[in-house]
Simulated assay, not measured.
Amino acid sequence: MEYCFGVDIGGTTVKFGLFSQKEGLLEKWEIPTKKGSEPTPLLKDIKVSIEECLSKNGLKKEDLAGIGMAAPGPVTEDGCLRGTVNIGWGDVFLGKKAEKLIGVSPVYIGNDARVAALGEYTFGAGKEVSSLLMVTLGTGVGGGVILNGKILSGASGTAGEIGHITMNLDELEQCNCGKKGCLEQYASAPGMVRVAQKALMNTDKPSVLRNIEVLTAKKLWDAAKKGDALARELTEYISKILGVAIANACYIVDPEMIVLGGGVSQAGVFLLDMVQRAYVENVFPHCRDKKFALAKLLNDAGIYGAAAMVFKQ
């Protein structure tokens, strides 16, 4: 039983990885996500895909130590997935349902951001530390805390949801979660674009950003790297908000390392240095020596973390 599957369920695709305890990732692939009011149709697709992979590799279900699954919603300690906004499910004990449908036991379930953090902790940027906070900057802002090798889930499955820390009590626009002033409204990719578009309307400062027909977070960071004054001002503002949010989170969990992941993190060391500097300038002195790193596993962090859930048992 040295094999397992890591499965990362996303709003568009489901990513799979076949792992060996000895050799690591053996194969990876993905299928489209079948959406609906409950998970049975998608679990049937996952079952077929897993069985095809086993057959191709000359393996049986009995060779598996289990399956790990990352899902886009809060997951409680007892394995209840508390709804998936992007797919359409309500509350479901997804692991138990998957065990019955797929015919493999155990199936471990975790929130996608938290599982990605476990992947980075076990196989990626955090291999040398005992604890970390991972912040993913993409369509939203996700977060995960790993303490002594375990995912911190919390009573309602929302521990680590740094994207919904309130950063501006005077914000008038709503976040996707229904609140106002969330970190996600400033530090997600769409949030960064929102910040930039507001600035372009409210200032006459010259900027190459004015000549971009479809502004994106990547184009904003690229312009800042090339020395555009307004772009640099905006990225410093965004970095300060993110740095302060990370400082606030560190007061609660005090991790050894901060890992930045997600699509926006591809701005690289330029972004990392700005966020770390903002963090140091706005944090309690005893917390200033945290290690900062960029995620290494990129889009594979979810399947690696899902596999880690199995092998760590």
Rank of each mutant, 00 (worst) to 15 (best):
Cys4His: 09
Gly6Met: 09
Thr12His: 02
Thr12Ala: 09
Lys15Tyr: 02
Trp29Tyr: 07
Gly36Arg: 00
Glu38Trp: 12
Glu38Asn: 12
Asp45Met: 09
Lys47Thr: 15
Ser49His: 09
Asn57Phe: 00
Lys60Gly: 05
Glu62Tyr: 01
Ala65Leu: 13
Gly66Ile: 01
Gly66Thr: 01
Met69Gln: 06
Ala70Gln: 03
Asp78Asn: 15
Asp78Arg: 08
Gly79Pro: 10
Thr84Trp: 00
Trp89Thr: 04
Trp89Phe: 11
Val107Tyr: 07
Tyr108Lys: 15
Tyr108Arg: 15
Asp112Ala: 12
Val115Phe: 07
Ala116Leu: 01
Gly119His: 04
Gly119Arg: 07
Gly126Arg: 01
Lys127Ala: 06
Lys127Pro: 02
Ser130Glu: 13
Val135Asp: 07
Gly138Tyr: 07
Gly138Val: 05
Gly143Met: 04
Leu147Met: 13
Asn148Arg: 09
Asn148Glu: 09
Asn148Gly: 02
Ile151Trp: 11
Ser153Tyr: 08
Gly154Lys: 06
Gly157Ile: 03
Gly160Cys: 08
Ile162Trp: 01
Ile162Arg: 04
His164Ile: 12
Ile165Tyr: 02
Ile165Lys: 00
Met167Cys: 13
Leu172Val: 07
Leu172Gln: 10
Cys177Pro: 09
Lys179Arg: 14
Gln185Met: 13
Val193Gly: 06
Arg194Gln: 04
Lys198Glu: 12
Met201Leu: 14
Val208Ala: 15
Leu209Gln: 06
Lys219Met: 09
Leu220His: 06
Lys225Val: 00
Gly227Ala: 00
Arg232Asn: 09
Glu233Tyr: 04
Ile241Gln: 08
Leu242Arg: 12
Leu242Asn: 09
Gly243Cys: 08
Ala247Ile: 13
Tyr251Phe: 11
Val253Ala: 07
Met257Ser: 05
Ser265Lys: 02
Asp273His: 05
Arg277Leu: 14
Ala278Leu: 11
Ala278Phe: 11
Ala278Tyr: 10
Glu281Asn: 13
Phe284Tyr: 15
Phe284Lys: 08
His286Asp: 13
Asp289Ser: 14
Lys291Cys: 01
Lys291Asp: 05
Ala301Cys: 01
Gly302Asn: 03
Tyr304Met: 04
Gly305Ser: 08
Ala308Lys: 10
Val310Tyr: 06
Phe311Gly: 11
